[in-house]
């Protein structure tokens, strides 16, 4: 759990605070994507959590402890940290890099060696092949995997990620986003992810927090933010294709009328496909409805163009595909 209470950062001589009284609650095991235009204070906010930047006001509670009262060096050993350039140590092997925090914590050799192999396996790098290699000999994606393995090595409950995949090529980025999200969910890590990439925020965040000029403008689930932007700024930041983006968050199975027999000759869509895919099939085929299939003998149900349209508009949803939740801020 990470809780920010009225957290602010005012640099002496600056006209306005870099971060202006932010309240933010990230529940245990959840990932919050901090997003906003450059200069909005998202990185400053992130760096105050492990006190690389000292807050000028407010309180930050991580896993039940007030970080502003803790010894910063010890505090940071308990918080995973992943940055854009990876910051891997070029003079150490992959294993040496992953072992960094366990070594700082004084673990014994055998425990560290076992942990390093386990972490490399976790992020999809064969320990036998990668353990002794140098960061310089790795691809961008592999380096970032090592960066994540290093951040998770001492099993911190909380992880801070600052534009972690910005330097990775697009194809590898998508794969990394999916794999790392899955790992973080499985390990129940509480994560703050700073990004300027809306797709990344939507794909990885359980919640999305939009910042502007040092203030938190909106904090909600991705589909909620996309459906109901708090103001004109958020709407513009999300882009006029936000309705389409939102469809990537919903599956055909969740939006279809289950049990309803599809019209004769209706095109099929897999149950786990996103509504964006379903819409594409509808538009491509000219049909009004799709048969949602899951490999069973009969279709699961019918997905109509009208249902997708209603969902995209954020109208009350007849099928209950998007469960309403209370505001998160």
């Amino acid at each position: 759990m990470i809780r920010l209470e009225g957290v602010g950062k005012h640099y002496p001589g600056a006209a306005r605070p870099a971060v202006d009284g932010i309240d933010l609650l990230i529940e245990e095991g959840r990932t919050c994507a901090l997003i906003g235009p450059s200069g909005c204070g998202k990185t400053t906010t992130l760096r105050m959590v492990n006190r690389l930047i000292e807050p000028s006001s407010g309180r930050i509670v991580v896993a039940g402890r007030d970080v502003t009262a803790a010894d910063p060096v010890k505090l940071r050993r308990g918080i995973g940290y992943v940055i854009q350039g990876t910051g891997l140590f070029p003079h150490l092997s992959v294993a040496g890099n992953v072992a960094t925090v366990p070594r700082l914590l004084g673990w014994d050799r055998a425990r560290i060696a076992a942990r390093v192999d386990a972490m490399l396996g976790l992020v999809g790098l064969d320990p036998a092949l990668f353990r002794d290699r140098r960061p310089a000999s790795l691809s961008g994606g592999q380096r970032q995997r090592v960066g994540v393995a290093r951040a998770l090595a001492a099993d911190p409950p909380v992880l801070l990620m600052d534009e972690p995949f910005a330097a990775v090529d697009p194809l590898e980025r998508g794969r990394l986003q999916r794999e790392i999200t899955e790992i973080l969910r499985r390990l129940r890590k509480t994560v703050i992810l700073v990004t300027h990439d809306l797709d990344e925020a939507i794909r990885m965040g359980d919640t999305v927090a939009v910042m502007r000029d040092g203030r938190l403008v909106q904090h909600d689930r991705p589909d909620q933010v996309l459906a109901a932007p708090a103001d004109a700024f958020v709407a513009e930041f999300l882009g006029s294709d936000r309705a389409l983006r939102r469809l990537t968050l919903l599956t055909a199975a969740a939006a279809c009328r289950s049990g309803e027999r599809p019209p004769e000759g209706a095109p099929e869509v897999p149950a786990e496909a996103s509504l964006q895919v379903a819409l594409s099939i509808l538009l491509g085929s000219g049909a009004e409805a799709l048969a949602v299939v899951d490999g069973g003998p009969r279709p699961v149900g019918t997905l109509s163009l009208a249902a997708i349209r209603a969902l995209a508009a954020g109208l009350p949803d007849p099928s209950g595909a998007v469960a309403r939740s209370p505001p998160l801020v």
């Binding site: 940071r76 940055i83 910051g87 700082l104």
Partner: peptide, 18 residues
Amino acid sequence: VPADILDAADGMGFSRGR
């Protein structure tokens, strides 16, 4: 020494001397 490497070291809990 590259700044991102120092940032990573600080963020992981190296003391100044270490």
